[in-house]
Amino acid sequence: MRVSVIIAAYNAEAYIAEAVASVLGQTVPPDEVIVIDDGSTDGTRHVLGQFGDRITVLTQDNSGQAVAVNKALATAQGDLIGFCDADDLWTRRKLELQLALLERQGDVEAVFGKVEQFVSPDVPDEQRERLRPAVTVMPGELKQCMLIRRAALDRAGPFDESLPATFFIAWLGRAKQHGLTSAHVDDVVVRRRLHLGNGGRINTDAQNRETLLALRKAIKARRPPE
């Protein structure tokens, strides 16, 4: 089975090289890595150019991560789809472990794993304590932790582009309503970087509003037609 990995990047110059390298450096490498630059104004494109033909680079005007991911998915050729955030890191055996589970359990459509949160080394000392996570390692039903069969991904439909911060939460709820079967490997598969630019930490009000909107949409979708 072919594996495609999608990374959406916006002004990710500081971290994108490490993220891409963690995907390319898997013990079982992916067949395709698509990085979509969401209208960056920093040196992201220059950094991506250093990987040459090892990755496919797409571009768009700044439209948000959900739009970027949907655009990249339209070009992906893999039977299995994985995602990495531009500031996070995959552990080296992520694909190896998740592929093995999918091969053993043919009825499983999506595999998740644990996420380890860490404060980025570039965070100033005086800011580190407020970013320190209450829980370091935990189960991760996150986009970057998931490897999913393309058919199951498509069954639930595209990511909701009206929810730029919480589109994956909304999609996962919809996918479960459509019968998504999932499993977890008991290993850390992603290291989630905590830094001063994390969208969820600097835009908490917007994220809370989107979460409520996503919940309302989910409740409405469950109601029988009148």
Score class of each variant (00 low, 15 high):
65 Q>W: 06
88 D>F: 06
222 R>A: 14
95 L>F: 06
173 G>A: 05
183 A>K: 06
63 S>T: 12
103 E>F: 01
90 W>F: 13
42 D>T: 05
79 D>E: 15
38 D>I: 02
112 F>T: 08
218 A>L: 14
104 R>D: 13
129 E>K: 14
92 R>F: 08
44 T>G: 00
33 V>M: 03
46 H>T: 14
41 T>G: 03
71 K>G: 10
158 P>D: 11
14 A>C: 05
179 G>H: 06
132 R>A: 14
137 V>M: 09
193 R>T: 12
175 A>K: 06
202 I>H: 13
130 R>F: 11
32 E>T: 09
104 R>L: 11
120 S>V: 03
198 N>D: 13
22 S>P: 10
161 E>K: 11
52 G>M: 05
160 D>P: 09
32 E>K: 07
194 L>C: 09
73 L>V: 01
181 T>E: 14
122 D>A: 09
68 A>Y: 02
12 A>H: 05
49 G>F: 04
141 E>P: 06
126 E>W: 10
56 T>Y: 04
155 R>H: 12
142 L>S: 11
54 R>A: 07
209 R>H: 12
123 V>I: 13
156 A>N: 12
148 I>Q: 09
84 C>F: 04
93 R>E: 14
136 T>G: 04
189 V>T: 14
25 G>S: 11
97 L>S: 07
68 A>H: 04
66 A>E: 11
51 F>M: 02
18 E>A: 15
172 L>I: 11
34 I>M: 01
125 D>M: 12
30 P>C: 04
147 L>H: 04
44 T>P: 01
22 S>C: 04
117 Q>L: 10
151 A>K: 14
42 D>H: 00
47 V>T: 09
191 R>V: 05
140 G>R: 08
211 T>R: 15
114 K>E: 13
217 K>E: 09
36 I>W: 01
2 R>G: 04
206 A>I: 12
128 R>D: 05
128 R>G: 03
100 A>T: 13
170 A>I: 07
124 P>G: 11
219 I>R: 15
181 T>C: 10
53 D>V: 00
218 A>S: 14
140 G>A: 10
201 R>A: 13
123 V>F: 12
10 Y>M: 06
99 L>S: 08
